[in-house]
Amino acid sequence: MSAQEQLLSYVNNELLAERNLRAEANTLLFADGWIDSLSILKLIAYVELLIGREIPDQEIVMENFRTVDTIAQHFGVRP
């Protein structure tokens, strides 16, 4: 499984599982409350784990976090 697939799997199995929601790589993660304040911290921590560095707060903006695809592209998560 590629790192990008791992990220999508994490989103679906860890962050969205309880809500019975399923995201695709291009699903808007912050529409309609899919990601809440706890989930965003888990998501950031998982992306940091995948890329091996801390993400500064200034980089945590919609442009970089819109979808799993955008996260992967911006932070260099391997496809």
Partner: peptide, 8 residues
């Protein structure tokens, strides 16, 4: 978490 969610 809430601050970053607001920011995103």
């Amino acid at each position: 978490g809430r601050r970053l969610l607001q920011q995103v």
